[in-house]
Design a binder for these strands. Structure first.
Length: 522
DNA sequence: AGTGCCGGGGA
DNA sequence: TCCCCGGCACT
């Protein structure tokens, strides 16, 4: 660990701001090519008298003292990662540097310091803790030639995490949104806890932090952090958490919970897009507090945030990517209804009469789930609930059909919801106006109405045997879901029961032939 | 195991 | 078409 840390600490390759050679005061960015220790051995940033050889943008090499580079920093205080890293290396834990890190860090920083102190005796405590953190970041962002204002990988990772959480929360229910915030809080808390474990320790940061297993999908282009806007606090607090998160990220403690969540969410997200390929419309929603503007393009939303909320007028060029934090991707399922209908259609044909009712309920199914879910705490908790997978959608339709059948049959169907768990559950919820916890109740009543009204058209055939046929037709569909054939077993008594085997001659012919009884139809 | 039926086959 | 029965689903 220690060795690793030391290596990573190197400031070489770090992007820094330095005074403009022309003396016009405008800071210039450059990459640290070499560090000369005028004073001591400690090679990295912590050393006080260091001369940094910086490769300027114009290709020239310049040497700057720490102070000079630091000055450059100040100019660009707004830039998160870079700024912080620079500060650390240059300012030796100056007050400013801490400010940058924000409230979140402070606690962790303390922890970190402790650890650092314990480990490195020959170093300056003040410088150490800060510089370590910053360097870690630096190493990541600087060594890789990241576009100017890009966030460090760690931050990106955090973004991914938070983005995943946001997406998850969005997909589940609006009410659940608050949880996401909690999650982040919880995370920070856990991180802190972990801090002791070492998450936020300098060493952990660069190596482990940046590379959480679940952060792998680096291609996620929408690092949206709900926490800032949602937290209702200024964006500073928000930012801090993310940074802090970066440090802790590596740590394992918080990871477990996060891991699970994220893992589930990620896993969940994956399938959905695949299945909804065609039906998903992606919108971008501004997460800025009290804004909520929705735009169809990422560029648009970024511009919106940049100009409206961040107060920047420059082009995307001058963007540091911060906007990413304030918007989130919203996937709108445009064909959920169609999907539901389509799933229904295969079954409905045989039913003929039932179809009419389904139309109304189905639409609601696709639309209500979100609004309804909140009411069912159990459902909302499960990430799966969020995913209105085709299955979940189809389940409702199937259930719906069941309604057309007799109550006694409904009992069997009811098992379906339970088996399908959340998805079905949510669907059911949305389906029944009253949304009672028990399916059986809500489902039972519909059948009655259907048989009376909806079925009536086909029922025109008449009573008696005719009626039995109608019933058979209705009942068959539900069964179709499993076994296509088999007429529903008659409820009432049959010739066999009535007359007994000994009086078989008294049976109706059908019974005698082992066919559906025609005498005692239900 | 008993019952209700479907699907199939023989006459 | 009548009659019977194997076999399945369900209770």
């Amino acid at each position: 660990m220690h060795t690793r840390r030391l290596v990573k600490r190197s400031i070489l390759g770090s992007r820094v701001y330095a005074p403009s050679p022309t003396g016009d005061g405008a800071p210039v960015t450059g990459v640290v090519q070499a560090v000369k220790q005028e004073n001591r051995d400690v090679s990295a940033a912590g050393a006080r008298r260091s001369v940094y050889t910086v490769l300027m943008q114009d290709g020239s090499l310049k040497e700057f003292s720490e102070e000079e580079i630091a000055a450059g920093f100040n100019h660009t205080a707004a830039k998160g990662p870079l700024k912080s890293s620079l500060k650390q290396s240059s300012t030796n834990g100056a007050p400013d540097g801490h400010k940058m890190e924000g409230g979140c860090l402070s606690p962790e920083a303390a922890e970190e310091q402790r650890l650092a102190d314990g480990k490195r005796v020959n170093r300056d405590p003040d410088t150490r803790s800060v510089s370590l953190l910053e360097q870690k970041r630096k190493v990541v962002s600087s060594s890789i030639d990241v576009p100017h204002a890009r966030r460090s990988e760690e931050e990106v990772d955090m973004d991914k995490v938070t983005a995943a959480m946001v997406l998850t929360s969005l997909s589940t229910s609006p009410l659940v949104r608050s949880p996401p915030v909690k999650v982040s809080e919880g995370l920070s808390g856990s991180w802190k806890d972990n801090g002791s474990a070492g998450p936020f320790t300098p060493s952990s940061n660069s190596s482990s932090g940046g590379y959480w297993s679940w952060s792998a999908p680096s291609d996620q282009s929408n690092p949206s952090t709900p926490s800032p806007p949602l937290s209702a606090d200024s964006f500073k607090p928000f930012r801090v958490p993310s940074l802090g998160g970066v440090g802790p990220g590596p740590a394992g403690p918080e990871d477990p919970s996060l891991d699970e969540q994220d893992g589930s969410s990620l896993l969940f997200d994956e399938p959905i897009p695949r299945k909804r390929k065609n039906s998903m419309k992606v919108m971008f929603k501004c997460l800025w507090k009290n804004c909520g503007k929705v735009l169809s393009t990422a560029a648009g939303i970024q511009r919106h945030i940049r100009t409206i909320h961040l107060g920047r007028n420059c082009d995307s060029d001058c963007s540091d990517g911060e906007e990413d934090f304030y918007y989130t991707e919203i996937k709108l399922n445009t064909d959920s209804v169609a999907d539901g209908l389509s799933s229904l259609s295969p079954v409905s044909p045989s039913i003929l009469s039932p179809p009419p009712p389904p139309p109304s309920p189905l639409p609601s199914l696709s639309q209500l789930p979100d609004s309804h879910r909140p009411q069912q705490s159990s459902d909302t908790k499960e990430p799966h609930a969020g995913g209105a997978t085709p299955l979940s959608r189809s389940a409702p339709s199937a259930l719906y059909l069941i309604h057309t059948d007799h109550a006694y049959q409904a009992t069997a169907p009811v098992s379906i919801p339970s088996s399908t768990s959340n998805s079905a559950g949510s669907a059911c919820t949305s389906f029944t106006p009253t949304n009672s916890s028990s399916f059986s109740i809500s489902w039972q009543s519909p059948p009655v109405t259907f048989t009376g009204n909806t079925v009536s058209p086909s029922k025109s055939q008449g009573f008696g045997e005719q009626r039995s046929q109608t019933i058979a037709v209705l009942s068959s569909p539900p069964r179709a879901t499993t076994a296509l054939s088999r007429k529903v077993r008659g409820e009432g008594k049959k010739c066999r029961k009535v007359y007994g085997m000994e009086n078989r001659d008294m049976w109706c012919t059908a019974c005698r032939w082992k066919k559906a009884c025609q005498r005692f139809t239900d």
